[in-house]
Amino acid sequence: MSITRMFRDWDKYRKASPSGDLEKDHPDYKWAMAIDLDICTGCNACVVACYAENNVPTVGKDRFEHGQTMHWLRIERYWNEADAETPHRGAQFMPMMCQQCAAAPCETVCPVGATNQTPDGLNSQVYNRCIGSRYCSANCPYKVRYFNWYDYPEQEVAWPEPLPMQLNPDLTVRSKGIMEKCTFCIQRLRAAQSTARTEGRLVRDGEVLPACAQSCPSGAIVFGNLADPYSQVAKLWRQQQVELHKDKQDKDKTGDNGGVRGYRILEELRAYPSVLYLERVRDTKA
């Protein structure tokens, strides 16, 4: 390959991520979410389900206070300052997990390439490859990556007897010194994809759900395949006029946000997150 040819065919080598052509980037699957904050009641069922499904260690009160907690999915509680006189309106809740960015800031900085984009649009974390430099966490705008500050499976009592019996055998417990984070329950996705492949089809909408979406009593978390235009999640994204590959949505240029509630967090940083949030509607007269 000559240099001249390389420059001539530059477009072939230069790969924008995401390219804007969802079908080209992800012919089969692009896993995504839509979370309706208006439906979310902040009940934390998703968090509990996440702990159970993913063998997330419970760190205890002291370490929680030290900020060393491991919750892959956290419910953030915000009190709106404008609501100070009307506390009965309640707090606002925001379930926050790894946003599975299409151009993830964490991926480029990892010295060993332990975190990567998968063909189905996930931001994977390879535990065996991680050396624990924590650069990914440093560069994550959402700070949704959690580091194993201690040796939870061996030295700590994250799962006192007989709790080890309930650990999920579909995935590992993580050793000390490595980074972990929400995977969109990749063990479930892989199982469903494998079944579908055996049957010569794609995964149907609703056939597989991560633990949080499955356990949400109010149905605030919608999960599915964005590459499938008929999936519920794709419909929501379309309805909310949010496109994966844009750092500023067309609707935001109109002034009234197109009359819809959809937004992605810190979109302007160009990480292209895969989680769509639907703003909560407040009754200002109540």
């Binding site: 480029t108 900085v109 010295p111 060993v112 390439g113 991680c130 050396i131 050793s175 000390k176």
Partner: peptide
């Protein structure tokens, strides 16, 4: 490093698995 005993993963040594470090990373 969290796993000091694996620090050599960050060095570009030839391995039989063709695993290289991430050349994009400033580290």
């Amino acid at each position: 490093l969290g796993r000091l005993w694996k620090f050599y993963y960050s060095l570009p040594y030839p391995s039989e698995r063709m695993l290289w470090p991430n050349f994009q990373s400033p580290l």
